[in-house]
Design a protein around this nucleic acid. Structure first.
Lengths: 339, 339
DNA sequence: TTGTAAGCGTTATCAT
DNA sequence: ATGATAACGCTTACAA
């Protein structure tokens, strides 16, 4: 097993010097540094995380979490994943501080980012709103050396180290393929969409429409916008269904599943409509139990949270950079039976 | 942060004494032990895995793996999961030794267990054959203090510490529910089953049949046995389909998916038959691309392997017992789009 | 029965 | 620019 000590001995220098070389702390003669690096490569030295973790206990890294999860049950599982990982890693000296907010209020999210910056977090896990100012704020943090993971949503032009979440385009494609499986070659589709400020929702719709090109008998008759609000979802869906009585399929792009389903039930259309929706929140599961929804698409929210924390741990405590920039969880299809 | 040192100081004893109490090494006066234990509970002491890992580097634990994976592509992903976890944990001093075998040869598996026992593995990850002698061999290892995880298959009357795998009964139920979703209320089903020596296969069929009770229009017309062999699967399926031309659905319980599908194609029945099968091995994915299979059920094989190693790591290196006895991965439904 | 001290690998501080 | 040393939390051989 190759350790710093061994490298030091073989190079005829001290452990301190090797450490300085390995971590680029400077104050080392270039030739010495080169000799050390050669030895490191030759022996394939890998730092021991246990040693690192132990030594790192002096300056306990603190990870900030910002989620627009208030009033959105989908995030409950993400939070559970984050907290599970935290309880596993806190013994290594990692601390967690969580901030929750509601909806897509850019100012509010910027304020939270500021707040965490002032606490000097060394890592940030955030479900960012898709807005240039957010991207800029994140970039500023990254430039200051903070390790940033975007979770569940990503932002354009953002230099975060990692994105952890689902492939939204693929989610839309999968939704369309599923609808085809359930209905055959024809469907008159009503779309219920959420917010433009979630990039993912746009991508999902794009994916759905792209996949539709393979099925000439599929057509979108109308679109309702619910802004992820259940009441609004109920009303807009109802209106859409009344105005377009020949709609036989519903594609619910994001939140507001319960409201949309209630609208379907209130019109007594639950037997005639094929509905494709996302995420197994309790109210959605309720609708599955009632048979209104036969199937949903699931994005491993628990895994998303756990993975995000794990990446922060590996980086901040073990000093291991993420292997990839994007960690994509699969879109899964769920029936009541395999929830 | 509460450490052994702090406990020792507060109790007015030495660190060595606390260590002896915590790890039940004896040679401690009962009253001292009690005082220490009280303090430990009061402060909620948790050992620091980094410290443990570091100190444990003298006696590197070795984990043995036995898989009947030869010629069964399903195990490839399990192995990838095991190896990924190993590469992450080897720096903590954990070593891995893998033995592969083919099929359900009890004697062969017993011999491999013996072999690993003679190497003095401290952990064993095994996909056990469902046989009493195997159960007994595993029990003997457990009694000797080996940490045993059954992966993918479980055995009756076996005292392994953990089972990691899917819920087979639920897999059968899900398969039936899926078939109902695809075909509506009636189906004339042909069953293609694998081996009686895999407990899981039995359970899946049970689950399928139980779920069938909810659908009066479903009936099983015939059953073919393929012993997980592709050639046999081809022949038996073909024979079954010829003898029962009114079969409109195929439930493939385990291996031999490719052979069964080839039989379907050779009879030009791929347009008429609805097939439900398990696992996304390359040949199965091929059949999905050809449109013979529209959908399969997936059991997170990579996760199974990773989780099994993780449990061994937590136990052997960090001295943390598993929280549960069974780690069940969900049965997922896959289309070509979300593979 | 209990305490002491060294060691696991890395990092930080201080001295040179 | 480099080295020596202590510290992180835990285990263990040895001393008392």
């Amino acid at each position: 097993m190759v350790t710093i000590k061994k490298i030091a001995e073989l190079c005829g220098v001290s452990r301190g010097t090797v450490d300085r070389v390995l971590n680029g702390r400077g104050r080392v003669k270039p030739e010495t540094a080169e000799a050390v690096m050669n030895m490191v490569k030759q022996l394939g030295y890998k730092p021991n995380p246990a040693g690192k973790a132990l030594a790192a206990r002096r300056h306990r890294p603190i990870v900030g979490v910002i989620l627009n999860s208030e009033g959105n049950a989908f995030f409950d599982e993400i939070i559970r994943g984050i907290e599970t990982a935290e309880s596993r890693y806190q013994i290594y000296g990692m601390k967690l501080t969580m901030r929750r907010m509601k909806g897509y209020d850019v100012e509010a999210q910027l304020a939270l980012i500021d707040e965490l910056e002032s606490i000097h977090v060394s890592g940030l896990i955030i479900s960012p709103i898709n807005d240039t100012r957010i991207a800029e704020a994140i970039n500023a943090l990254v430039d200051k050396g903070v390790f940033v993971v975007n979770v569940n949503n990503d932002v354009q032009n953002c230099r975060r180290q990692c994105y952890v979440g689902s492939d939204y385009t693929n989610g839309g494609e999968t939704a369309c393929a599923l609808l085809q499986l359930l209905r055959g070659q024809t469907a008159k589709i009503g779309v219920v969409t959420g917010s433009r400020q979630a990039w993912g929702h746009e991508l999902r719709l794009e994916g759905f429409q792209r996949r539709m090109e393979k099925v000439p008998g599929f057509s979108i008759l109308a679109t309702a916008v619910n802004k992820d609000d259940e009441i609004r979802s109920y009303e807009e869906t109802k209106k859409m269904l009344e105005e377009h009585p020949d709609i036989d399929s519903l594609f619910i792009v994001a939140g507001g599943v319960y409201g949309a389903c209630r609208a379907v039930v209130s019109l007594k259309k639950e037997k005639d409509l094929t509905i494709v929706a996302f995420d197994s929140t309790p109210t959605t599961v309720d609708m599955m139990k009632q048979g209104v929804l036969k199937t949903i698409i699931y994005q491993h929210p628990y895994q998303q949270g756990y993975r995000a924390m794990d990446l922060a741990f590996q980086y901040l405590v073990n000093d291991q950079k993420p292997e990839r920039e994007r960690y994509i969880l699969k879109n899964e299809i769920k029936l009541l039976e395999n929830l």
